[in-house]
């Protein structure tokens, strides 16, 4: 996580990391979207109260390379989250995101992801950015297409989702040369 991250996404939306003071807001939005999000994300099961989100926020490593633990904010309203995880030695970053149902359809995730991808390629020296989305998660897959990523395969049972179930994940990827042609 980068405590200083602050990216204007237009239309009054801002991407910035959570602070412990955001735990109530984060839990509230997850709780209100529990059934919808549990289809795609196992971590919904772990969001049992605000304290669980305080623990999540405080577990983000401040000196890591990853641009994670970010909320998409419209004023004081939390609309969703968008992260770019950077691990390993391959110069690969991995996007992840989710959205409150009330904010679906405004392009918020696409803009947040584009902002994180630009930082990942330009400042973090990433060579490739990938995204894994549930085969049936058509909204996420549409975002991947809008981001200019290419479908590269299906990882069977690779995603743990709510209720102890597993989902097949489509893997999308983009290399830095392809990204340069899009900006």
């Amino acid at each position: 996580m980068r405590p200083d991250l602050h990216i204007e996404l237009g239309g009054g939306a801002v991407l910035r990391p959570y602070t412990p003071a955001d735990a109530d807001a984060l839990f509230g939005v997850i709780d209100a979207n529990r059934v919808r999000l549990a289809r795609w994300f196992h971590w919904v099961d772990d969001a049992t109260d605000a304290a669980s989100q305080t623990a999540y926020i405080e577990s983000r490593v401040v000196d890591g390379r990853s641009l994670d633990g970010n909320g998409i904010w419209i004023g004081d309203d939390l609309a969703g989250g968008c992260d770019l995880m950077i691990t390993g030695s391959d110069d690969v970053g991995e996007l992840g995101f989710w959205l409150d149902e009330a904010f679906v359809g405004r392009g918020l995730v696409t803009r947040a992801a584009q902002a994180l991808m630009a930082r990942g390629y330009e400042r973090e020296g990433l060579h490739r950015i990938q995204l894994r989305a549930g085969v049936e998660n058509l909204r996420s897959r549409a975002v991947a297409k809008r981001l200019g990523m290419r479908e590269e395969g299906v990882l069977r049972g690779a995603g743990k989702v709510g209720g102890g179930l597993y989902a097949d994940l489509v893997i999308y990827g983009q290399v830095v040369d392809e990204w340069r042609k899009t900006v």
Partner: peptide, 21 residues
């Protein structure tokens, strides 16, 4: 299951990474 293009970094560049599961 797929090929993550340029997914492996080696001494002189990047190689396509075949994904097995």
């Amino acid at each position: 299951e797929g090929v993550a293009r340029d997914g492996i970094r080696v001494a002189d560049g990047y190689l396509d990474s075949v994904q097995y599961g």
